[in-house]
């Protein structure tokens, strides 16, 4: 069985998931995630040698369609829902630092 999830693990995962957690949330989530993962010990212990994984339950492969031009969603309608837009594009805060 894997080592129980630690507060440090939870803090690491929060960074990966782009979530900021308070100390209280960090403690709470550590306990709650540990309980769910402890329940999963039943499948961790299963011998699944030679069993292929299933990502998708039904046999659908290589879905193709004719390459026909169809109307997409309206650009103005989409941009109207953006938190900030400018000149037909999504506006975001600074991505790169100041030039040296």
């Amino acid at each position: 069985m894997a080592t129980p999830i630690s507060t440090a693990d939870v803090a690491h995962v929060a960074r990966l998931a782009r979530l900021a957690l308070s100390d209280e949330e960090l403690d709470q989530f550590t306990g709650q995630l540990a309980a769910v993962l402890a329940h999963a010990a039943d499948i961790e212990a299963l011998d699944t040698a030679g069993v292929p994984p299933t990502a998708h339950a039904l046999p659908i492969h290589n879905v193709l369609r004719d390459d026909v031009v169809v109307a997409g969603v309206d650009r103005e309608e989409v941009l109207a829902q953006a938190p900030a837009a400018e000149s037909g594009r999504f506006r975001v805060p600074r991505i790169l630092g100041e030039a040296p």
Binding site: A2, D9, A17, L21, L33, T48, P52
Partner: peptide, 29 residues
């Protein structure tokens, strides 16, 4: 947030095979 955290952990390096990969095999069973 809890589910995003759980899922990110299950997919993260070092735990993928034990959790997500194993769960997909159980799905086959």
């Amino acid at each position: 947030k809890r589910r995003i955290m759980l899922g990110t952990y299950a997919l993260s390096a070092g735990y993928y095979d034990a959790y997500y990969g194993q769960a997909q095999k159980v799905r086959t069973l």
